[in-house]
Design a protein around this nucleic acid. Structure first.
Lengths: 139, 139
DNA sequence: AGTCTTTTGCAACGCTGTTGCATTATTATC
DNA sequence: GATAATAATGCAACAGCGTTGCAAAAGACT
């Protein structure tokens, strides 16, 4: 586990630092989209908020995480498929539960093809589905 | 035109005030998704920023406008179809141009059906397509 | 015109995200 | 294992977004 984290950082030409390790660790452990606030909650005793912001920014640029569209605030999630700086994959489907508030990537789902009006060219497609997740429909 | 604006406000049980008239007017004239900042730009001499925020909030609640998902900041657009407090329509397709930065509703497009994992229930679907708009592919 | 209710403006505040700079840590090299 | 170069961190400060409380002003209705 520790090895995987360091490997991931090395692969993206990033120095191994405490903050980067712990942020990456948190993403791996929580398995959902996280906001800066979420991370600050568990890391603020050890790292400055600015450092966490910069870590997120760096991870974004390197393609380790991606932004998750949301109607309230910014969240980030791990890029499961191998994204690099040049080679991003550009389809994202996210599901946000209106009950528990969690947002997840739906990795298996593909964004359906959309017929754009003449002259339009698509570069990135984001689909956000809001509703009730499997856990919350049980209750 | 003036009549339409007042009618719209009355239909939603809102008092006719200067700020509401001008905000609505701006949405009708600009025909694209607007941020609070956009509105403040043209209205700040006449109305307080807080009033503009509250106007947007009120319009949201009444179903006159809806939030437009965006990777940077919050934008709003008119609900073309008749949304009311109880009867919203829940599919939105928006296109954001990476060149000119404008975001528009693609009213004609329908969100394609998506097969959710077992137990998931969809309530609202937002599709954001980023790329180049018809105007910007010309150049 | 008078009353009731809603809206507005103002001040203040918290949260998010950024920047500059001096200090500290990481990495590669010797 | 020490050293030098480079990168990351912490701190202070700041700008922008969005909200709240409250007193004053405006809208709606009789």
């Amino acid at each position: 586990m520790e090895a995987t984290i360091n490997d991931t950082l090395k692969e993206h030409n990033l120095r191994t630092t405490g903050c980067r390790e712990e942020v990456l660790q948190t993403f791996l452990a929580r398995e959902k989209a996280l906001s800066h606030g979420d991370l600050e909650g568990s890391l603020k005793e050890r790292f400055d908020r600015v450092t966490i912001y910069r870590t997120l920014k760096t991870f974004l640029e390197k393609g380790i995480i991606h932004k998750v569209l949301d109607d309230e605030g910014t969240r980030y999630a791990l890029c499961k498929e191998r994204c690099t700086e040049d080679n991003h994959h550009h389809d994202h489907v996210h599901f946000k539960c209106n009950a528990c508030g969690e947002t997840n990537c739906l990795e298996n789902l593909h964004v359906p093809a959309v017929q754009l009006p003449a002259g339009y060219r698509a570069q990135e497609i984001n689909l956000l589905i809001q509703g009730l997740c499997a856990d919350c429909t049980k209750n």
